[in-house]
Amino acid sequence: MSWVFAIGLALAAFVAMVLLFRLPRIVWSAVLAALTLGLAGYAFQGHPDEVGAPSAYHPVAPGDGWALVQARKEVLGEDRLSQNSLMLVSDAFMRKGQFANAAAVLGRLVQQDPKNVEGWVGLGNALVEQADGTMTPAALFSFNRATQADPASLAPAFFVGATYLRQGKLIEGRKIWAQAVENSPKNTWWRNELQQRLDRLDELLNRLAAMPEGNTE
């Protein structure tokens, strides 16, 4: 099964280069060769066919819950943070990697306060992590409700795009981030941050597109 994920990610990267950045046909062979080398390295180092071998996606470790909570607060901004005590309880569960418990608490929070944007974003994140990094219908619903609660917030689009990128859905992820940047007020901190991430991604893929045929360095 891990081979399916690895090959899928490689193909997703190639499709993104071709469709999003109009990768010239003349360099297709070079890029495919580079991706093939990457898969060969994965086969050599990862031992994907052995029992107990690591999969292509590694679930978030309990310690990573700290980073996820911090990222949510930073993207939302201090003026959009919830004062509901249930948010503190859910954050404690998130930091321990207990994502199902965090989701249960946040479900109560948004039921009490349907316009709580941080509650909906946090619920979406908890549901994604509970599903091992997969964007489930319930998680997407939560992020959409966050957008409805605060259309000006970048947080829902940021985390939706990030989740798609983690899944190897590069086209969907980049499209969502680009739309978020386009629809956001200029000169805001997180808009500029997201734009920089898009610029770095574009630069990397454009450099690959500019590679002469046969050059895989």
Results as ranks from 00 to 15, higher is better:
residue 188 T to E: 12
residue 25 R to L: 08
residue 140 L to C: 05
residue 60 V to Q: 13
residue 77 G to D: 07
residue 116 N to V: 07
residue 32 L to N: 01
residue 34 A to G: 12
residue 23 L to D: 01
residue 132 D to I: 01
residue 29 S to D: 04
residue 69 V to L: 09
residue 197 R to P: 03
residue 45 Q to W: 10
residue 59 P to G: 04
residue 81 L to G: 04
residue 137 P to L: 01
residue 145 R to G: 05
residue 24 P to L: 06
residue 106 L to F: 09
residue 36 T to N: 00
residue 119 G to N: 08
residue 171 I to W: 09
residue 111 Q to D: 11
residue 178 A to M: 12
residue 22 R to N: 14
residue 123 L to I: 09
residue 215 N to R: 12
residue 13 A to V: 12
residue 185 P to N: 12
residue 211 M to H: 10
residue 145 R to N: 15
residue 113 D to W: 11
residue 80 R to I: 00
residue 209 A to S: 09
residue 62 P to S: 10
residue 187 N to G: 06
residue 15 V to W: 12
residue 77 G to P: 07
residue 97 G to W: 06
residue 148 Q to A: 15
residue 152 A to F: 09
residue 104 A to M: 11
residue 28 W to T: 02
residue 107 G to M: 10
residue 188 T to Q: 15
residue 189 W to V: 14
residue 153 S to Q: 04
residue 212 P to C: 06
residue 173 G to C: 08
residue 78 E to S: 15
residue 20 L to N: 14
residue 2 S to D: 09
residue 1 M to T: 09
residue 65 G to C: 13
residue 55 S to H: 11
residue 204 L to P: 00
residue 162 A to H: 02
residue 39 L to D: 00
residue 173 G to P: 06
residue 124 G to D: 07
residue 157 A to V: 03
residue 117 V to W: 01
residue 110 V to T: 10
residue 190 W to D: 13
residue 165 L to I: 15
residue 114 P to S: 00
residue 95 R to S: 07
residue 51 V to G: 02
residue 88 L to I: 12
residue 186 K to T: 13
residue 179 Q to K: 15
residue 140 L to K: 10
residue 33 A to W: 01
residue 9 L to T: 11
residue 17 M to I: 04
residue 42 Y to T: 02
residue 185 P to Q: 11
